[in-house]
């Protein structure tokens, strides 16, 4: 049963809630309680910050041998995205034809199903990305 493991990340997966270091100002996503740059200096100074979900692709791949949870979408596009606020994250690019995605393509986050614990289990939701309109 993975319910609690997923549930406790909902704020970040649903709403892209990250953290900003109060000492140096660097934004982290997923949230961290310690800034790797400031370390001790950052303790107690990591502030919650909701990210815009907008960014641009710095690399991508079209996955043909995918994970079972994504088998209905094969081939699917994965990318590493640099968000406006600075952090880079990994996410799926959806609703695109593979040749629409390039390094530098601007994207924005959407809310999609990430998977489910079988036919009877809970459904997991979170961010994916689409090209910015």
């Amino acid at each position: 049963m993975e319910v609690a493991r997923f549930w406790r990340e909902n704020q970040s997966r649903y709403n892209m809630q990250g953290k900003k270091c109060g000492a140096c100002g660097i934004v982290y996503f997923p949230p961290r309680d310690l800034c790797p740059k400031c370390r001790r200096e950052s303790i107690g100074k990591m502030e919650k910050l909701k990210l815009s979900g907008k960014g641009k692709i710095i690399s991508y791949t079209v996955v043909h041998d995918g994970l079972p949870a994504f088998s209905m979408q094969v081939p699917y596009t994965m990318a590493i995205i640099e968000l406006e606020e600075g952090p880079k994250i990994t996410g799926q690019i959806v609703d695109v034809k593979p040749d629409e995605v390039k390094i530098g393509t601007e994207v924005e986050a959407v809310f999609r199903k990430l998977g489910q614990e079988g036919e009877c289990g809970v459904i997991h939701y979170g961010y994916k990305f689409v090209p910015k309109e």
Binding site: M72, Q73, V94, D95, V110, F111, R112, K113, L114, I123, Y125, K128
Partner: peptide, 16 residues
């Protein structure tokens, strides 16, 4: 709907 869309994702998209 795409395989990763359902009433919940559609409702969230519309609400946002």
């Amino acid at each position: 709907p795409s395989p990763d869309e359902d009433v919940i994702t559609i409702a969230v998209s519309a609400a946002r």
